[in-house]
């Protein structure tokens, strides 16, 4: 049984349909990359899994059980945690409080304040600082740490590298390595092809709301990926 299964997902916003009959499977313990250009539907896909958006048809199964009727706050307690696009830390709360809030719908598990501060040591000295004063990279670290506080079985991360300096991105991916190394299942959304090909066990490429390519990075050629990414034939 796979950890996450999507079948025939057609999420949209009002009259605008963003995903078309998307189906994919994420296995326990793997790092799954979702590639695609701007507007390909990557964030929509993650939001559908997290429960912020609903697909009018199709199924979302987690550990084999359908979850599409559950709101986002219930899915967290099942072990699905999303690091949203744009980080969305709570600006008026301190770093420490942000992490504490992250534990609101907490499951049992290895992740707690100590472990998060361990993986993201830069957060330690920012502990009592208000989150709105953090830099982009610090906010991203906080957002990931906050998501880990719920002890997810499936961690969804939307655009780790968005708007960050290469040095910061490298540090974040290094920390993420510790997370994936712990056996956690991670779904990563990225625009940066190179980064994702390095860390993902399998990738899937979205083009205009449809899955156009899927497989382990080493089995895919550069040409295939460019074609899938930009939609050139």
């Amino acid at each position: 049984m796979s950890l996450l299964e999507l079948e025939g997902i057609n999420t949209g916003y009002g009259d605008f349909q963003a995903l078309f009959d998307v189906s994919l499977v994420v296995e326990e313990g793997e790092t799954f990359g979702v590639l695609g250009a701007n507007g390909a539907g990557k964030s929509t896909l993650l939001k559908t899994v997290a429960g912020l958006l609903r697909s009018p048809s199709g199924q979302v199964r987690f550990e084999g059980k359908p979850i599409e009727h559950l709101p986002a706050q219930k899915r967290v307690t099942l072990g699905i945690s999303l690091v949203p696009e744009g980080r969305r830390v709570f600006p008026s709360l301190t770093v420490h409080e942000n992490l504490q809030v992250g534990a609101h719908g907490r499951r049992r598990g290895p992740w707690d304040l100590d472990r998060v501060y361990d993986v993201f040591p830069l957060l330690v000295k920012l502990k009592s600082k208000q989150a709105s004063y953090l830099s982009g990279g610090e906010q991203q670290a906080l957002a990931i740490g906050r998501a880990l506080m719920s002890n997810p079985r499936l961690l969804l991360i939307d655009e780790v590298s968005l708007g960050l300096a290469p040095v910061v991105i490298r540090d974040l991916y290094e920390a993420l390595g510790e997370v994936t190394g712990s056996g956690m299942t991670v779904v990563l959304v990225e625009q940066d092809i190179r980064q994702i090909m390095e860390v993902a066990d399998r990738v899937s490429c979205l083009l205009e709301g449809r899955v156009v390519l899927e497989g382990p990075p080493r089995e895919l050629t550069r040409g295939q990926i460019t074609a899938a990414y930009f939609g050139v034939r």
Binding site: P71, V76, P84, R88, V89, L93, V101
Partner: peptide, 24 residues
Amino acid sequence: TRLGRAFRATSDDQEAARLMGIDN
């Protein structure tokens, strides 16, 4: 308190708060 923090988190960003398991 835990609940008080949830109040403030919801006030800041109710969607992000839901992602933390808070029922807005």
